[in-house]
């Protein structure tokens, strides 16, 4: 386990900035004097309290399975891929949102893109190809994706047209159970 290097930090922040508006609050000091830090172990990036990270130094790299919240994975080409486990953090500071109806929740959770017919409402002024968090109509975050059309264009789209390309959904907790946390 080690802290991130400068380019790694940049890549991680760059990816998070696609989905979140306020990144400063992520590293802001907490009331008890503690703060959150980023740690890398087995090419996975964890978002964890500093006190817990310090405790975790007593565990060897191989023995340490996970700590804090796993944000995603650094690829071998140096890119960063967000995992579904980062959803609570993204949902808290989401830049753009899409709410999907009951009939669209299941297809989305099974890994399909969001069709216009399934959209209950979406945030205004959303450009195309920007990150968005997908919620159910009861404001429960279901996953995140990338908008296929801008809000204005999506209005003219036919009901079967795709509005949002899925990046990750809660169904991955089951589908990718084997590889999500280790391996």
């Amino acid at each position: 386990m080690r802290p991130l290097t400068e380019p790694e930090t940049k890549v991680v922040f760059d990816k998070l900035a696609n989905y979140c508006t306020d990144l400063k609050s992520l590293i802001a000091p907490l009331d008890d004097g503690d703060r959150y830090v980023f740690r890398l172990n087995h090419s996975r990036v964890y978002y964890v309290r500093l006190s817990i990270a310090n405790l975790a130094t007593s565990i060897s790299r191989d023995a340490l399975l996970s700590l804090g919240t796993c944000l995603g994975k650094m690829t071998k080409t140096g890119k960063f891929r967000l995992h579904i486990t980062a959803l609570p953090i993204l949902a808290e500071h989401a830049r753009h949102k899409i709410w999907i109806k009951e009939n669209g929740a299941q297809p989305f959770l099974y890994g399909s893109n969001v069709a216009k017919a399934h959209v209950g409402r979406w945030s205004e002024d959303c450009p195309e190809h920007s990150g968005c968090v997908v919620y159910s109509m009861a404001d429960i975050p279901l996953g995140f994706g990338v908008t296929a059309r801008s809000t204005a264009e999506a209005r003219r789209l036919d009901p079967t047209g795709i509005v949002c390309f899925r990046q990750s959904d809660c169904g991955e907790y089951l589908r990718d159970e084997d590889t999500l946390f280790a391996g």
Binding site: R2, P3, L4, T5, E6, T9, K10, F13, D14, A17, L23, K24, I27, P29, R35, V37
Partner: peptide
Amino acid sequence: FVDDRESMATILAIVQ
């Protein structure tokens, strides 16, 4: 490594 808050904040500000 980037572990102190100041350098992290500067990187964050640039990226943001």
